[in-house]
Design a protein around this nucleic acid. Structure first.
Length: 764
RNA sequence: GCGAGAGUGGCGAAACUGGCAGACGCGCUGGAUUUAGGUUCCAGUGCCGCAAGGCGUGCGGGUUCGACUCCCGCCUCUCGCACCA
């Protein structure tokens, strides 16, 4: 018998499996079912990375094990193929993105087959397939056709939206606009990071220090009409329904933090006209006591949100965001120049800059004051960018004695600090005048002596009774900015009505479901332009303009973000060839939820939150049978490059120990076999006094430490690669690659082979 | 700062509900094959000790017939989040 030769064994059986449909999954499970899913890859031009097969091997083990136990197993694979790299490659080379994407998918498929995973390849899909895009667009139309009813905490058809009488009497156009404002998919003017040099809008993460991460070009914040998805309506359910899921605690925590629920109160501070007399405030107070707390604040109040209404007596100033609508009216003539300049500077910063760590506090006094609702005292109003317009009401009451940000600001600008809470128990005095914890109230009028919790309850009632406050819940989660000024994405199935002059009337309508998909037009030029106008706006007229019912419409020219396709692919795998529905309800009910979902932790928040959101909307509208898509989730860790050792050489050429190196000594790579471990440190084998530094880096082309699965399979075989990756350590851990480790595993497989095969015997 | 996770040989690590600690691999040592080096194969390898034996899962305590595993306190490291009022 011959030696163990994976290069002969593996392709033979892979061909056999394919020929015999070994891993084909029936339409419905016979008895017990399990759905084992990998996070599908983006088919990049580089091909598979050794990190991919780690999770894929883990799910493959479970899938094969369950099949052997008689379970019907769903184990599919597909491709998340829309996205920026294909588009940039297309722009560089002039190749249409669909061409390079198809080539990359073919290469990925070849590599995945070579690794011998037991996927049902009859179910494969790519998010870029027109037949798939059709249903992505269809689900978008479900979102478009849904409003969130807070009374029942669930999405309902837009036709069921109650129309207030004053809207109804204003005519059908007003009703349509009212509906548009309540849909889960809606349009709004949102400030975005626009980079003129790159001709594109950038994500917050792509802007560093006010310039683009790529190329260092200036980025400006401009308002732009955008499609948004009302994920905030589902914030409460997205948080609460994490409970029943078998997910790592850290991922649940991450999602909770991202949603960021907090409870507190909204409080109105009256704005009195300059020179108002004392009784003007009394009149305002009396009117408020009668009318109660208005749903929307008028221009006569500054509404704030606080989690600590018990610190109201410690308020020494107010801060509003530079984008707050009252900035103009609150700014006095003397302060106007300074405020304008500050606001201008703030508009150039991205959100990320503004929340940059350890930044010095900055701000400008508006010149105006508001009236404290409990004491009647005048409180000065400042504008500062540490207050974000997009959270709460965009305005805060500052309590420098009990909030470290307010404390920093007060210290920087010499504002008063008034202590109103003291710690109870060990009686430690607050350090540095700052105490952010809960305790007992001091110098707080009638509330003095109350514990924080009791104070919050009591003052909440009193504020509500006086019509100047109410309990409130806030979320860090923002609505999801869903449109991109890009070519390579799903077009929105939306038409904008035009008037006789070709201008948009503001009326929009959905493309009829039977007209889907709206395919991308053929464009020779899909580069982003000088303006934020999307590439699709340069489409040929026969794509761009359509006539319906005697009216002319222009298609929406933004495209959907890459997340769209990955939000529901796990449903399409169940019924990939269905032309009538996105998934057959009987099939969906039989297979869902996904029993095991494995993928990288980088998707802990975005992908997993977005798909849960879409799934809940589909559930509310009766299209799927369960509220949550993924039962058990496991996050694989990253595979780093081979461990690298760095030594230092002096100008004379001799080695210098790492901890004693001077500024002039140069780093040099040391081969691993010249290094050994001594206690806590690595040293040179020939000179054990010389310490070297050790570190494993992320695999990257630039560093040249990328390991290609093709060469690993060629040198050692797919089974050695798979077995090695499972032996590297815990799936969840971040760990370095080791080629000697792969060869060790190959030696182990060689030994296994010899246990059952006598290589010295003649061929049978 | 807040949160989560992890500390076991020279190294990556295993040990499922408390029941023979260190499977398997790397490295190292010895041997076989080879003109030699490399490759391949076989054996050994937690630490101390010639041995008998003793000691060992970050440190200190506790529960238990029995603790890597459970409880309390401390130390170290890694990862995530971080002006969200």
């Amino acid at each position: 018998m011959p030696r163990y030769q994976p290069s002969r064994i593996e392709p033979k059986w892979q061909a056999w499996w394919e020929e015999h449909g070994t891993f084909a999954t029936p339409r419905l499970p016979g008895g017990r079912k399990t759905y084992v899913l990998d996070m599908f890859p983006y088919p990049s031009g580089e091909g598979l990375h050794v990190g991919h097969p780690e999770g894929y091997t883990a799910t493959d083990i479970v899938a094969r094990f369950e099949r052997m136990r008689g379970t019907t197993v769903m184990h599919p694979m597909g491709f998340d193929a829309f996205g920026l790299p294909a588009e940039e490659y297309a722009i560089r080379t002039g190749t249409p993105p669909r061409e390079s994407t198809e080539r990359n998918i073919a290469n990925f498929t070849r590599q995945l087959r070579m690794l011998g995973f037991s996927y049902d390849w009859g179910r494969t899909l790519a998010t870029t397939d027109p037949a798939y895009v059709r249903w992505t667009q269809w689900i978008f139309l479900v979102l478009f056709d849904t409003w969130f009813d807070p009374a029942v905490q669930r999405g309902r058809p837009i036709a069921d939206l109650p129309i207030p009488p004053d809207v109804a009497t204003a005519g059908p156009a007003a009703v349509a606009r009212y509906r548009d404002d309540h849909r889960l998919a809606y349009q709004s003017e949102a400030p975005v990071n626009w980079c003129p040099a790159l001709g594109t809008v950038l994500a917050n993460e792509e802007v560093i220090g006010g310039v683009s991460e790529r190329g260092g070009h200036p980025v400006v914040r401009i308002p732009l009409r955008q499609w948004m998805l009302r994920i905030t309506a589902y914030a409460d359910r997205l948080e609460r329904e994490l409970d029943g899921l078998d997910w790592p605690a850290s991922i649940k925590k991450l999602q909770c933090d991202w949603i960021g629920r907090s409870t507190g109160a909204e409080v109105d501070f009256a704005i009195l006209p300059p020179g108002a007399t004392a009784d003007a405030y009394d009149r305002w107070k009396a009117a408020r006591a009668e009318s109660g707390f208005p749903a929307k604040p008028g221009s006569d109040v500054l509404r704030i949100y606080t989690t600590r209404p018990d610190t109201l007596y410690g308020v020494t100033f107010m801060v509003i965001a530079p984008e707050h609508p009252l900035v103009d009216s609150l700014t006095t003539a003397a302060q106007r120049t300074e405020i304008e300049a500050y606001r201008e500077a703030a508009s150039r910063k991205s959100d990320l800059d503004r929340t940059d760590l350890a930044r010095e506090k900055s701000g400008v006094f508006t010149g105006s004051s508001v009236v404290h609702p409990l004491t009647g005292a005048a409180v000065p109003v400042w504008v500062a960018d540490y207050v974000l317009a997009s959270y709460g009401t965009g305005a805060i009451m500052a309590v420098p004695a009990h909030d470290d940000r307010d404390f920093e600001f007060a210290t920087a600008f010499g504002l008063d600090v008034v202590t109103v809470v003291e710690p109870v128990g060990d009686g430690r005095p607050p350090a540095g005048g700052l105490f952010a914890g809960e305790g007992r109230a001091v110098t707080s009028g009638p509330y003095t002596g109350l514990a924080t919790r009791d104070f919050i309850a009591a003052v909440g009632q009193d504020l509500a009774a006086a019509g100047v406050g109410r309990p409130a819940v806030n979320y860090k989660l923002r609505d999801w900015l869903f449109s991109r000024q890009r070519f390579w994405g799903e077009p929105f199935p939306i038409l904008h009505e035009l008037d006789a002059h070709g201008n948009a009337t503001g009326v929009i309508r959905a493309v009829e479901p039977h007209e889907l998909p709206v395919n991308l037009p053929y464009l020779t030029d899909f580069k982003p332009g000088d303006t934020p106008d999307p590439p699709l706006s340069r489409s040929p007229d026969d794509w761009l303009f359509v006539d319906r019912d005697g009216r002319r419409y222009r298609r929406e020219t933004n495209t959907m973000p890459q997340w769209a396709g990955s939000c529901w692919y796990y449903l399409r795998f169940l019924d990939p060839h269905n032309n009538d529905r996105f998934v057959d309800p009987e099939i969906e009910k039989a297979w869902m939820p996904v029993d095991l979902y494995i993928g990288g932790a980088e998707h802990a928040v975005l992908h997993l939150l977005y798909s849960r959101f879409w799934h809940k909307v589909l559930y509310d509208r009766g299209h799927v049978s369960q509220a949550e898509p993924f039962g058990k989730l496991v996050n694989q860790g990253m595979i780093l490059g081979e461990m690298e050792f760095t030594g230092y050489r002096s100008a004379k050429g001799g080695w210098v120990s790492a901890e004693q190196r001077g500024a002039d000594d140069v780093a040099a790579k040391v081969p691993a076999d010249q290094v050994e471990k001594q206690g806590e440190h690595f040293v040179l084998r020939d000179a054990p006094k010389i310490r070297v530094e050790s570190r494993a880096y992320k695999m990257s082309k630039a560093r040249g430490n990328v390991v290609n699965p093709d060469s690993v399979v060629r040198d050692f075989g797919a089974d050695s690669l798979r077995l090695y990756e499972m032996f590297m350590g815990p799936l969840e851990a971040t760990k370095p690659w080791s080629t000697t480790g792969v060869s060790g595993v190959r030696g182990f497989l060689d030994r296994c082979w010899r246990l059952v095969v006598d290589e010295r015997a003649d061929a049978v």
